[in-house]
Simulated scan of single mutants.
Amino acid sequence: MLVCHCNIITEKDLERTIIDLLDQDPWQLIVPAKVYHAMAKRGRCCGCFPNVVETIIRVTEEYHARSEAGVVDIVSHLERVRELRVQYGSRTHERRQTGHRAA
């Protein structure tokens, strides 16, 4: 599935890059900018970043589920990331107010 149409990045490309980053350090914080940097790309319109974040969370969960890490560590870390995303991620969209109209 095509995730980023600006850079022509597929979901499989993202998954491979995220797994490569996790192989380097399984507990590092992976954000879209780090993934794009590892792929030698850059966010242009950044409309794909919410989908990239969901892919990062999914792949990280699967990666740690296959590893020998303690389940308590994995769940608490990922739940905290989800809470922060809900708390900060949905307040505004591109810094526009709800009633903003471009036309």
Rank of each mutant, 00 (worst) to 15 (best):
T60Q: 02
K12E: 07
Q97E: 14
D20F: 06
G70R: 07
A69K: 03
G43Y: 05
D25W: 02
Y36Q: 10
R82G: 11
L84G: 08
V75G: 09
V72R: 07
D25P: 00
A65G: 07
Q24Y: 06
A102T: 14
R95S: 15
W27C: 00
M39T: 01
E79S: 13
V75C: 11
A102Q: 15
D73T: 01
V52F: 11
T98M: 12
D23E: 03
I8S: 12
V53I: 11
I19Y: 01
R96Q: 15
V52N: 07
A33T: 08
E68H: 10
E15L: 05
T98F: 14
V31G: 02
L78M: 06
S67Y: 02
K34R: 08
L29V: 00
T60P: 00
L14S: 05
D23Y: 00
E15N: 08
H5P: 09
V75S: 12
Q97W: 13
K34T: 04
E83C: 11
I57T: 08
E11A: 05
S67H: 02
L22T: 00
A103N: 14
Y63V: 01
D20Y: 06
V59A: 04
I18C: 00
I74Q: 07
L29A: 03
C48I: 10
R101A: 15
H93G: 13
Q24N: 08
C45Y: 11
L2C: 07
V35Y: 01
A40S: 12
T10Y: 08
N51H: 12
H100E: 15
I9A: 11
H77C: 09
A40R: 10
E68W: 07
E79Y: 05
M39R: 03
I19W: 00
H93T: 14
Y36K: 10
A40C: 13
V71S: 11
V75H: 11
A38W: 01
R58V: 06
Y88W: 10
D73Q: 04
G70E: 06
Q97K: 15
I57G: 08
P32N: 09
C46I: 15
S67A: 06
G43H: 10
V52E: 06
R42M: 15
D20G: 08
A69F: 05
T55D: 13
I30T: 02
C45I: 10
L78G: 02
G47W: 12
V52A: 09
R95Y: 14
Y36C: 09
V53T: 07
Q97V: 13
L14A: 06
R82N: 11
D13W: 00
C46P: 11
V59Q: 02
E61A: 12
Q87F: 05
E68T: 09
A103C: 14
A103T: 13
R44Y: 11
T55Q: 14
L29K: 02
P50V: 03
N7L: 08
M39I: 03
C6R: 09
G43C: 14
S76C: 08
A33M: 07
G99V: 08
S90H: 15
A65F: 05
G43D: 10
E68Y: 08
E79R: 12
D23A: 02
L14Y: 05
I56Y: 05
P26M: 01
I57S: 11
D73G: 02
R16N: 04
D20Q: 11
L84W: 03
G70I: 01
T55L: 12
Y88H: 11
A69L: 05
L29R: 03
T92A: 13
A102K: 15
T55M: 13
R96V: 14
